[in-house]
Write a protein that binds this DNA or RNA. Structure first.
Lengths: 292, 292
DNA sequence: CGGCGCCTTGATCGGAATCAATGCTTGTGG
DNA sequence: CCACAAGCATTGATTCCGATCAAGGCGCCG
């Protein structure tokens, strides 16, 4: 197996323009909801572009095949009694058995593992419509933790309920299985990213993935931007880099006019070029269509 | 989330002893079967410590729960018509639909993905008893490739056969599901490794994992060593490092008297210390026992 | 005001990559 | 049988990406 010397260090550039303010930390009230960071009193109503009709879960599962009215009803019911929860809230503790699984209705969560020396690797993100691992139902000892990033609304569902659904509605069962297949496809793509891509490519790839996945559940604003309540430390833990290096890489991206990341909101300004840098395809997220 | 500064750079050492020859490349006939590397005529009968009675598949699945005589019979049948195949043989091509899945009966295979610039990331190893993803059955477009590493014997099984088995034998179905859960647990552990551990830890962790997994299917010799037909380039692609750096790290391991890696055979000389360096627990591979 | 979370920046370090060459071994073909 | 090529392990010299260390700044709270 040859390994070609990879020249692509100098990413397609645009350096003439530097119009994008690097997230000017001074002026506030730029545009969007001030994101309350830690222990504030008021609770911001969970903002997702598509709150109203179809739950994100339904939107997501529908991509895997037609569902009938009954099934749609049942799925929407799951999101009904979602509760607001604070950022940092843990849903699953590595090693501690759970008897329920969680559905992210709006907001963001992540899976992660920690090393004994305190290093952390984030293993994946849970977006609206994502269920945190049906498989915890079987393997009673979760091998990793799940925690919220940013305030979210989450429905807690007894495992028995899911089991029941899967028995009664084969099409839901199939869709859930396919969804968890996509999860492992994503996981493999991450391993590729963390193992082989450089900092710039990692960041671009991550942003592309989030954009596509959020788009699928209607989490993208009209102006093309979306909520991404991750700080630079979290990004570092996601991509296997240090916060400092994330910071510098982000600045390059901003200076190149590729993104705007500000107030926990990301706007991808040049999706095309971002994808080129990352070598992002997106087909890997399309299992739904492929198998549908 | 604090991140403690990790001091542990100097691994527990043993440097007095340097008795282990660093794989003396000069003298041959050390001990074991000369490994034929590329297109030779003769085919070495696949060597696995436990060829005779129980197939590796059975051994593996039994760990997830009792099976009856029928089920045992059926499982053993699957390995029956395995065919010898050469190293480098591809079983699955990323993107090309398959209509069958493969069972590794003896030998070694790996999953991997490639970047367009030629970089490769190995995503996991398939040991005797491992099935290369039941899920390809559903997602017709595999998202990664699978190829043999070292000559192996492999049984090709039509998807229909597997589907049938899973319908007819719930306990087999359950065991297969659990097995694929373990696969994703391993995948997550790899992401942690590639993302957060340093070269020495990565290597140690990988060796520990392989030892434990091989042990479970009887792939370990009486002297504690086992076949590991990976070269340094492959190791590099596994751990996200370069071959040169793998080489140097291996030498440290040898000089410390921790391992002996020679002629595609690995002997772990100090499992305890290897595990300590790696922060290896092994519990994550034990889902079988936990849920059994 | 003071503390804290988070982002930013500069200086410096270091682990791993890269470049390059050598040598052993095995297989091939004349 | 020998010359030659290819695959692989090894080694030294050098480079560099990203880590580490350290300090400062802004904005938000209590």
């Amino acid at each position: 197996m040859l390994r070609f010397t990879a020249p692509l260090r100098n990413y397609p550039s645009h350096s003439e323009v530097m119009d994008i303010a690097p997230c000017a930390p001074k002026r506030r009230s730029e545009t969007n909801p001030v994101y309350l960071d830690y222990p504030p009193r008021s609770f911001p109503s969970p903002v997702t572009a598509s709150a109203p009709r179809a739950s994100a879960l339904l939107t997501k599962l529908s991509a895997f095949g037609q569902l009938d009215v009954n099934e749609i009803e049942v799925l929407n019911l799951l999101s009904r009694n979602a509760k607001p929860m604070r950022s940092e809230q843990m849903l699953i503790h590595e090693g501690s058995p759970t008897s329920s699984i969680y559905l992210i209705v709006s907001g963001l969560a992540c899976r992660y593992k920690m090393l004994c020396d305190g290093r952390r690797q984030i293993l994946g993100y849970l977006l609206p419509g994502d269920l945190c691992d049906i498989h915890f139902a079987i393997a009673n000892k979760p091998d990793h933790s799940v925690a919220l990033i940013g305030d979210s609304s989450v429905a807690q569902i007894p495992i028995s309920r899911i089991t029941e659904l899967m028995l009664r509605y084969p099409r839901i069962s199939r869709a859930l299985t396919l969804a968890s297949l996509v999860d492992s496809v994503i996981l493999r793509e991450w391993l590729l990213s963390v193992g082989q891509r450089d900092a710039m490519q990692k960041l671009c790839h991550f942003f592309c993935e989030m954009a596509v996945r959020l788009e699928a559940v209607g989490g993208i604003n009209d102006d093309g931007s979306f909520e991404l309540p991750v700080n630079q430390v979290t990004l570092a833990d996601t991509l296997g880099l240090t916060p400092v290096h994330i910071n510098r890489t982000l600045q390059r991206l901003r200076n190149e006019g590729l993104i705007r990341l500000c107030q926990r909101r990301l706007a991808i300004l040049d999706r095309e070029r971002l994808a080129t840098i990352a070598g992002f395809d997106g087909a890997y997220l399309q299992l739904g269509l492929a198998a549908g």
